[in-house]
Design a protein around this nucleic acid. Structure first.
Lengths: 121, 121
DNA sequence: GTAGACCTTAGAGTGAACTCTAAGTCAAAT
DNA sequence: ATTTGACTTAGAGTTCACTCTAAGGTCTAC
């Protein structure tokens, strides 16, 4: 069992962000008698998944949608699969964009270095 | 010579965005007698570069910094090179993150499909 | 027993990058 | 001549995803 700040530390996000995710319905930690949030290993795993989705630009609204489907039960597996496949397609497109710009930059950087060498000579 | 809306159309961005970029010092189109902006091929090329940088998450402030260095002349080539190299590193890191999550999603998607097939049988 | 560090809440504030509005000018088409 | 549509401006508004504040409660160590 972890407190909010232990969980935040473990995940490299702020306690503020965790409270925000809870308000948005993305996590639902138990509370102890004093009303303090208790995160377990399952929550950590889920948050690691959420973090990966955010790092790859999945909007919080889509993560909410995915979470909601999860809570609705097994019969939503098809819809969840669709969300994951859509996001994977987004990732693949994004990789292509990044690779194209990476190559463009390599050319530009090479040209810069050549030009600067010319100046030093 | 292109008007702002022709330029916007050509680049797939809005005229609003072009005015915003001008206000930020990222472009400086000429004006005709009536005060109307005139974009030429050089502006288009520059904006295509800006667009690629934005698509790969370079912040507008960094693009501004790069533009400013450009305007200051040849002696800033080293600084500009540094900015480009830093952004290229960001891109490479981002590609790695995306690829890792892509693989994770492939596994998750496969698992989903297996589970759903099990249900259909 | 009190200081300090943690936790709680509702709700306000922030920064980035647009995106839009209102009020107005101007040139071309009918 | 007037309507249409594109252009102009300054500045306000929006969306996203946090991020922080204020006011207060509770637990642990000295």
């Amino acid at each position: 069992m972890y407190t909010i700040s232990e969980t935040a530390e473990k995940l490299g996000m702020s306690a503020h962000t965790l409270r925000y995710y809870e308000k948005e319905g993305i996590i639902a930690p138990q509370r102890n008698e004093a009303g303090i949030r208790e995160f377990d290993e399952q929550h950590i795993l889920w948050l690691q998944f959420v973090k990966k989705m955010r790092e790859t630009q999945m909007p919080v609204t889509q993560i909410k949608a995915y979470t909601k489907l999860f809570q609705e039960g097994e019969h939503t597996a098809g819809d969840r699969l669709k969300l994951l496949e859509e996001h994977q397609q987004y990732i693949k497109d994004q990789i292509e964009t990044l690779q194209a710009t990476d190559e463009m930059l390599t050319k530009k950087i090479t040209a810069y270095k050549k030009a600067m060498k010319g100046i030093l000579n």
